[in-house]
């Protein structure tokens, strides 16, 4: 299967701090990739570089064979890579429906700002698309609620639904279950993953909960100290002694120590 996303020798430094280094990998279309790692391991830096929020210091990123390294985030979004955030990024003073209209309207239009000034926001197409997305992510019953009043889980779903409005081919989810109670986590991921499967979207998701990773990922990237220390199927990665020592914490540090 050909890669939809390829990364070669990616590196990001902030002064003398190396946040990411020597990252090379290929992601085939429609694969679901879990990204694990302790805080500060480089997961979000990796996501930020792919989505244009940060420019890599070195290396290249290819999307569908085209070099997108260092492009602005909005250009990368328009090319087909979208993302959600660890802290849900929605428009708090608007209702859920208005949030979805805004997302659908932005996604549908051309890049020209003048053209945007001449196109109405609430076109029938944008409304239909917004309704379908709310249905798919099961947030229709909150449609008239202002985003600021939403429970955390619904706000996360709205954030992801908005990210999907542009029909991306690749979606990066940064900790989709952070701030969600243990009881709700699996339900939320079931809704998200089944919606994304319906749309045939390639997914990379950052996650701390190893059960979630084991259940939803086809493949897992384990980050440690800015680089990928394991890249295999979930059961293999989660059984890796280095992963157990430095990331999942299932093996006490020092026991069968493996140097990173």
């Amino acid at each position: 299967m050909s890669a939809i996303l390829s990364v070669r020798d990616l590196e990001k430094t902030f002064g003398s701090v190396v946040a990411a280094r020597d990252i090379s990998l290929d992601v085939p279309a429609q694969q679901t990739v879990g990204i694990i790692g302790a805080n500060g391991a480089g997961k979000t830096t990796f996501v930020n570089m792919i989505t244009g929020h940060l420019s890599p210091s070195k290396g290249s990123i290819l999307f569908e064979g085209n070099d997108i390294t260092g492009l602005p985030s909005r250009t990368i979004t328009r090319l087909g890579i979208s993302r959600s955030f660890q802290v849900a990024q929605v428009f708090p003073s608007l209702t859920v429906t208005e949030n979805m209209w805004a997302a659908a309207a932005i996604a549908r239009g051309r890049d020209s700002i003048i053209a945007r000034a001449l196109t109405p926001l609430d076109t029938p197409e944008a409304k239909t698309e917004a309704d379908a997305a709310m249905e798919l992510f099961q947030i229709t019953r909150y449609r008239d609620a202002r985003a600021v009043t939403l429970p955390q889980g619904v706000r996360k779903l709205l954030d992801i639904a908005m990210a999907v409005a542009g029909s991306p081919r690749v979606l990066l989810l940064d900790e989709p279950t952070s701030g969600i109670s243990i009881e709700e986590k699996f339900g939320l991921m079931d809704v998200v993953m089944s919606a994304l499967k319906t749309r045939r979207i390639t997914v990379l998701f950052v996650e701390h909960d190893m059960e979630i990773v084991g259940r939803f990922a086809d493949r897992v990237l384990a980050f440690y100290d800015g680089t990928v220390i394991a890249d295999e199927r979930p059961e293999t990665v989660l059984a890796n002694p280095r992963v157990q020592t430095f990331i999942s914490g299932t093996k006490p540090a020092g026991e069968g120590a493996v140097h990173a």
């Binding site: 602005p72 909005r74 990024q89 608007l94 805004a102 932005i106 996604a107 945007r116 926001l121």
Partner: peptide
């Protein structure tokens, strides 16, 4: 203009510039 995409995005821009940029508009 207020009913257009560019005009109606005033509140989204005020609320959350990051989300607007990541939806694909400058």
């Amino acid at each position: 203009y207020f009913r257009s995409v560019a005009g109606a995005l005033a509140i989204p821009v005020r609320d959350n510039e990051i989300r607007v940029e990541f939806l694909g508009i400058s």
